[in-house]
Computed example of a mutant assay.
Amino acid sequence: MCIAKLSVDRVELAKGSYSTRLVQLGEAAGLTRHEVHPQPGDVLLARVTEVGEHRYLERPDGRLANLFDDDEVLLCYGEHEQAQVPDDLGPCQLVAAGGVAARTEREGTKARTSLVPLGLLVDEEGQVLNLRRWAMRMPVPYPSRPVTLVITGTGAGTGKTSAAAALIRGLNKAGFQVGAAKVTGTGMGVETWVMRDAGAKTVLDMTDAGLASTYRASLPTLVRTFELLVAQLAATGVGVVVVELAEGIPQAETGALLATPDFAHCVDGVLVAAHDAVGAGSGVARLRTWDLPVIGVTGRLTRSTATAGQAAQLTDLPVLTLADLRGPETAGSLAKPLAR
């Protein structure tokens, strides 16, 4: 393998990203381009050639850094909708502001920020640095599982993250220590920081399990990621874990995880976020076929009193606004009967 030396100054000057925040850059000894076939999670140094849709890069500390042409950035490869990890180090795109690179399969309505990879980071032995190297391990002994509440939705933009943050806030007020996890989706800090700001003691996501994203991940990988993140949160001593699943029930990986009995056995309650009453009814019905304990409906439909009433009739479940979830009475009522 042909390796180019990588100076400390060059690494420090490059704009690091959220998805690479766990990477120990002191282990980077060089760059390689020779006979390289990138894999999901591989860490790369790239140059921005044209700023497009993603004008900002989420830094490891949460700051949104402006991107400029010719910037050098530290990213990782990851699968993404309408984009995939390429089999070479040819030009690619920034597909998530959290620092995920892939090659777009077809152009959308907006041009993505264009990149030229300069090489994959390697250690002294020539091993490519991959996020898996710094993935959390399953705690030993395995801790008792805390009350685990899941928020999923009927699609994107239904209000899942807002509902998760509100529930965390309410549980805090009710006297619970809360941990939170985003199990499916793409490595981005914006959702995890919202949950931390709401009062979660610890927030983890798929990058803590060594994944840049869960798109096209196998079902065993999804189950392991879920179990690992919940176990790691349990080890911190929290009484309740709030789990958010990205995109919603129709999304392939999220739907597959929801449907597996291994997931259902580790979940105490599920809230469904939806845009409208019909969507809520359909989503709840689907979850019930998977023997999941659905305990309520929330999301954008709660903006309309009429729509909320229709959803309550269709599902025979309480419809909870953000104000309800932020309240200690409602939030506590969702967790206290389940507390071990």
Rank of each mutant, 00 (worst) to 15 (best):
A14V: 10
G16F: 10
S19R: 03
L22S: 13
G30P: 10
T32M: 05
R33K: 12
Q39V: 07
P40H: 03
G41M: 06
R47N: 05
V48N: 02
V51P: 01
R55A: 09
D70Q: 15
L75F: 12
G90A: 10
V100E: 00
A101E: 09
A101I: 01
E107W: 11
G108D: 06
G119H: 04
L121I: 07
L121W: 06
D123I: 03
P139K: 05
Y142I: 02
P146C: 01
T148V: 15
T152G: 10
G153M: 00
T158N: 02
T158W: 04
A165K: 01
R169P: 00
K182T: 04
D197K: 13
L204G: 11
M206N: 09
A209N: 10
L211W: 15
A212R: 07
S218N: 05
L219M: 07
P220H: 08
T221Y: 05
L222F: 08
V223S: 03
L229Y: 10
V240H: 11
I249G: 06
E253W: 04
T254R: 06
D262Y: 05
A264D: 12
H265V: 07
G283E: 04
G283I: 01
A285C: 09
R300W: 10
T302L: 08
Q310A: 13
A312F: 01
D316T: 09
P318F: 08
A331W: 11
A331K: 08
